[in-house]
């Protein structure tokens, strides 16, 4: 009984992770991932229930149940924690609409030096991004 519940808990948690991660490359991450949160909490609850049920059983705790449930709780908690970190500290922005673009130099992917002087007379969409991974 507990083995089945803890296994189901792990499947729920990991498949919710997988589904969420699959949305990222397509840029379709929901603004309010309510479904993912509900499923993660459900998975974590089932995992804890399985451990409790298993703990009081006559045979004592089974290693498989403990392993599955612990992984499910940790992964679920990690998902919820990451989600809680989503806000960025906006407000430190040092440029505004109407300003002249502050000049800078940087290195391109080819190792060449890039300077904003090259942008004279050109329209540009300048993106700051978090980096590739």
């Amino acid at each position: 009984m507990a083995g089945g519940i803890s296994g189901a808990a792990l499947v729920i948690v990991l498949s919710t992770w997988a589904r969420y991660l699959s949305l990222i490359p397509r840029g379709r991450v929901p603004a309010r991932p309510l479904g993912s949160v509900i499923l993660q909490v459900l998975g974590m609850t089932l995992a804890v229930a399985a451990i409790l049920e298993n703990y009081w059983s006559v045979d004592g705790p089974a290693a498989g149940v403990v392993a599955n449930s612990t992984t499910a709780v940790l992964m679920g908690a990690f998902f919820l924690w990451l989600l809680a970190q989503r806000k960025t500290p906006v407000g430190d922005l040092k440029v505004g609409v109407g300003d002249i673009l502050p000049g800078f130099t940087a290195t391109t992917s080819d190792g060449a030096i890039f300077s904003t002087d090259e942008l004279d007379g050109k329209r540009v969409l300048l993106k700051f991004f978090r980096g590739g991974w």
Partner: peptide, 14 residues
């Protein structure tokens, strides 16, 4: 970086 997009015209103005 915080994900930020700036559109700049040909005069270098944001």
């Amino acid at each position: 970086a915080i994900p930020t997009s700036l559109l700049v015209d040909e005069d270098g103005r944001i």
